[in-house]
C-alpha cells in the first residue's frame, strides 16, 4: 500500500511514459544553459576592455594548474556515473564508495578554485630585466610585465616585481571572471551538498536510482559547463591572438 501511496505523491501518471522529475531536471538544465550563456557572453563582450596596468588573463592564468583541476572534475563525473551504475545493479557498497569519491573530487575542484582565487587576488608580476632587452624574449612578455619592467628596471637590477592583485573590482576581466567562475563554483558546491545528503540518507533509507540520477544529471551538467569555461575563458583567454 505504501508504495502505491508514494506513487500518488507527485502525480506519477505520465502521458509520455517519462518520469516527471527527470523531465523537470532536463528542462532546468536547458534553462541553466541560458544562465551560463549570459554570464559567458558578458565575459566575452568585455574581453580587453581593461584599463592598462591591471592584470589580464595572460598575466594570472596558469594553464597547467587549471588543466589539472579540469581533469579532477572530469574524474568526478566518471565516479558519479559509476556510482549510478552500481546503484542500478544494487551494489550498495560500491555505490557509496563512488559517491564519496565524487564528493571528494568535487571538493578538490572547489579547493583548486579557492586556491586560484587566492593566488589571483595576491598576484605578483615578476620580470627578468634581461628579457626586456632581448627582442625575442620581450615579445613573449605580457603588456603588464613590459610596463612594470620598463618602469622599474634600472642599471644593475636583475629582477623586479610588483604586487598587482586581480580583484573583482580592479577591472572588467576581474568582475566577469570572478562572477562566472564563482557561480560555477557555487553550482559545484550545491552539487556537493546534494550528493552528501544522498550519501547520508543512504544509511537511513533507500536512495532510489532515480533520485541519484537526478543529482547525477546536475553534476554532469556542471562538468560540461566547465568544459566550455576551460576552453573559452582559460585557453582562449591566454591565447596571444587576442
Amino acid at each position: 500500500m505504501k508504495t502505491e501511496n508514494i506513487k500518488h505523491e507527485e502525480n506519477e501518471h505520465s502521458y509520455t511514459g517519462l518520469n516527471s522529475k527527470k523531465l523537470l531536471m532536463w528542462a532546468f538544465l536547458g534553462s541553466d544553459c541560458m544562465f551560463f550563456a549570459a554570464l559567458i557572453a558578458t565575459y566575452l563582450v568585455n574581453m580587453g576592455n581593461n584599463p592598462p596596468g591591471t592584470p589580464f588573463p595572460e598575466d594570472v592564468f596558469s594553464i597547467p594548474i587549471t588543466t589539472v583541476s579540469t581533469f579532477v572534475l572530469l574524474m568526478s563525473s566518471m565516479s558519479m556515473v559509476l556510482s549510478y551504475a552500481s546503484l542500478s545493479q544494487n551494489k550498495i557498497k560500491a555505490f557509496r564508495v563512488w559517491l564519496l569519491s565524487t564528493v571528494i573530487l568535487g571538493a578538490t575542484f572547489v579547493g583548486f578554485q579557492i586556491f586560484e582565487f587566492y593566488e589571483f587576488s595576491h598576484h605578483e608580476v615578476k620580470v627578468e630585466c634581461g628579457d626586456l632587452i632581448d627582442a625575442s624574449k620581450r615579445e613573449k612578455l605580457t603588456d603588464l610585465q613590459v610596463k612594470i619592467g620598463d618602469e622599474k628596471c634600472i642599471e644593475g637590477v636583475k629582477k623586479v616585481s610588483e604586487k598587482v592583485p586581480l580583484t573583482p573590482q580592479v577591472n572588467l576581466f576581474g568582475s566577469t571572471f570572478f562572477t562566472l567562475t564563482g557561480f560555477h563554483g557555487g553550482h559545484v558546491t550545491f552539487g556537493i551538498i546534494w550528493l552528501l545528503s544522498l550519501l547520508i540518507y543512504s544509511f537511513k533509507g533507500n536512495v532510489s536510482p532515480l533520485n541519484l540520477d537526478l543529482a547525477a544529471l546536475y553534476w554532469h551538467f556542471v562538468d560540461v559547463v566547465w568544459i566550455v569555461i576551460f576552453t573559452v575563458v582559460y585557453l582562449f583567454g591566454v591565447f596571444p591572438g587576442y
Binding site: 563582450v45 568585455n46 581593461n50 573583482p168 573590482q169 577591472n171 572588467l172 568582475s175
Partner: peptide, 16 residues
Amino acid sequence: YGMNFFNPVRGGNPVL
C-alpha cells in the same frame, strides 16, 4: 561590491 559591469568609468558597458 563595486564591480564594473555597467560602469562606464571603469570600462563597463551600459549598452550590455
